Amino acid sequence: WAAPALAPITRQVSGHTAAVRVPSGPTAAAPVPSGPEHGQPLAASVAELPVLDANGRRVPFGALFRERRAIVVFVRHFLCYTCQEYVEDLAKIPRSFLQEANVTLIVIGQSSYHHIEPFCKLTGYCHEIYVDPEREIYKRLGMKRGEEVTSSGPSPHVKSNVLLGSMWSLWRAVTGPPFDFQGDPGQQGGTLIVGPGHYIHFIHHDRNRLDHKPINSVLQLVGVQQVDFTGRPSVIHV
C-alpha cells in the first residue's frame, strides 16, 4: 500500500526532500502555528489506528495529540543503538520546557509493548511512549524501509561508532528473548509535528539509521526552549 503524497505544509528543518514536499528557500526554523489553516489534515483512517502503551492498552493514534501539539518520533527498533542514543537525548528534555510551550513529546516504536518498560529504563526516557507492532502507522505515513546512502553527515545525538554500536546492539539481541528483534531491522523512523487536532505541520522521513532530525531544530519549530546535549554543566548567573 502506497501512502498518498501530502501537499506542502511547512518548511523542512533541513533541505532534505521527504514524502511531504516543502518549499525551497531559507531553512531558519520558527514556531509552527496550529490549526486547519496551517496544517495538512491527517486521514481519519490513520488517526483511528491503535498504538499500545506499556500495559498493552490500545489508544487511537489521533487521541495522542487531540488537545495540543505533539512532537512524535518514530524509532527503528528498540535494539538499534542509534535509536537508543537518540532517545537518551530526548530524555534530557525537561518536562518544564515542554509544559511551558504546551507541547507533548511522544516516542513510538514497533516492538511488542512488553519492551517499552525495559527500553525506558535503558534510556532514562520518561515522556510518553507507545508501540505500533504491526507497523501500520509507519506504512500509512510513508516511513521508509531499507538504508539509503546519504551525505547528511553524522548525527549529533549518536556517540558510538558503527562497530561498537553494532556490537552493543548484537549483545542485547543475543542476551534477550530468542528470535525477538524488537521490531523490523529494515524499518526506518521519522519525526512529525502534529496537533492540536488531526493536522500535520511537519514531517521528516529518516532515510537511514543516522538521519534523525537534530532535536533542537525540532524543538525550535514548536517554540520549545533549546537543550544542551553536550553534557557540559550549565552556568548559573547570579
Rank of each mutant, 00 (worst) to 15 (best):
T191P: 07
V103H: 05
S169G: 10
I9W: 06
I200A: 08
R207Y: 08
N55P: 00
S151G: 14
N161V: 03
E117R: 10
I116L: 08
G146C: 06
G189M: 04
G231P: 02
G142K: 05
G183F: 11
N102T: 05
R172G: 06
P23K: 09
A173H: 02
K139C: 04
V218D: 08
I9L: 15
V174F: 15
V13R: 09
V238F: 12
P23T: 13
L164S: 13
T150A: 07
G35D: 03
A3R: 12
L163W: 08
A2Q: 14
V51R: 02
A18V: 02
T191K: 03
V218P: 05
H237F: 04
Y138W: 08
R172T: 05
L42R: 00
C120G: 01
I203A: 11
F78W: 08
G189C: 06
M167N: 12
G56I: 09
I203Y: 08
R68P: 00
G223E: 10
Q220R: 03
E147D: 15
S234L: 13
S112G: 13
V59S: 07
T10I: 00
D53L: 09
H16M: 02
G153N: 10
I71N: 06
T10Q: 15
A70L: 14
P60F: 05
Q220N: 02
A29Q: 10
S155R: 06
R11F: 05
M167G: 13
D184V: 02
V22M: 04
R58E: 15
Q110D: 11
D211W: 07
P196I: 12
D206R: 13
G190C: 01
L90S: 10
H157Y: 08
Y86D: 12
V22P: 01
V149F: 07
Q188E: 14
V158Q: 07
A7H: 03
G223T: 12
P33E: 02
L79I: 06
E100M: 03
G197Q: 09
T230Q: 04
P8I: 06
M167K: 14
K139Q: 14
R21A: 11
A54P: 01
V13K: 04
A173F: 14
V149K: 13
W1C: 12
R68W: 06
Q110V: 09
